[in-house]
């Protein structure tokens, strides 16, 4: 995984609540191999709709997405994260997320940032009114800096933060605890025999 660096970018507002992972990546693209262009499939069936922001010229090149409540609920498909990351997004700011999507994001360099509903609503309103307004997502400092320079702190698991900042994956860490896992297996083996 690449190291997560501060992201300074304009932000695309996906203002609706409960945007599900079937919208983010429709099921007919689920068989694509990991190295396929998932970004091209992002929100495929919503693109082209007049009120859908992704392809509008004012938000091209955005690396931050703004979402409504319960962003990316539904299916466990990690492909939804691959699609957002593949399209260029590195952070999604929303009041709440589907659990599995948030976990998947942390493991793929797509940072889920939870901020209070009113804060996100204000950021969405600002992005719609002034698309060139930039946000900065600073994981090191655990804050989002808005276009007025106001810092909004956010919470994140310290370990996930370290993994993202240093570009290490969880698996290497867990494998370093092989001895504890083996001891656990010996114990349940005895209990079950």
């Amino acid at each position: 995984m690449e190291r997560f660096r501060p992201v300074r970018s304009i932000a695309v507002p996906f203002a609706r609540d409960n945007i599900d992972t079937d919208q983010i990546l429709p099921a007919r693209f689920l068989h694509l191999p990991r190295d396929a262009d998932h970004g091209a499939c992002l929100f495929r069936d919503l693109r082209g709709a007049p009120d859908f922001p992704l392809d509008r010229p004012q938000w091209q090149g955005a690396r931050i997405a703004l979402g409504g409540r319960n962003f990316a609920c539904g299916s466990s498909r990690e492909n939804a994260v691959w699609a957002m990351h593949g399209h260029g997004f590195r952070a999604v700011i929303a009041p709440s997320f589907g659990d599995i999507f948030a976990q998947n994001g942390l493991k793929n360099g797509l940072l889920p940032v939870r901020l209070p509903e009113a804060t996100v609503a204000a950021m969405i309103a600002r992005a719609e009114a002034e698309p060139s307004a930039e946000l900065t997502v600073d994981l090191q400092a655990q804050q989002v800096i808005d276009a007025d320079g106001v810092a909004h702190p956010f919470e994140i698991d310290p370990f996930a933060r370290r993994c993202l900042l240093e570009g290490i994956d969880e698996l290497a860490f867990t494998l370093s605890h092989e001895e504890e896992i083996a001891a656990f297996e010996r114990r349940i083996g005895r209990e079950n025999s």
């Binding site: 498909r77 990690e78 599995i100 976990q103 998947n104 493991k107 793929n108 969880e170 698996l171």
Partner: peptide, 8 residues
């Protein structure tokens, strides 16, 4: 769980 977690 997600795919990375499956691999884990």
């Amino acid at each position: 769980i997600g795919m990375t977690e499956v691999a884990h």
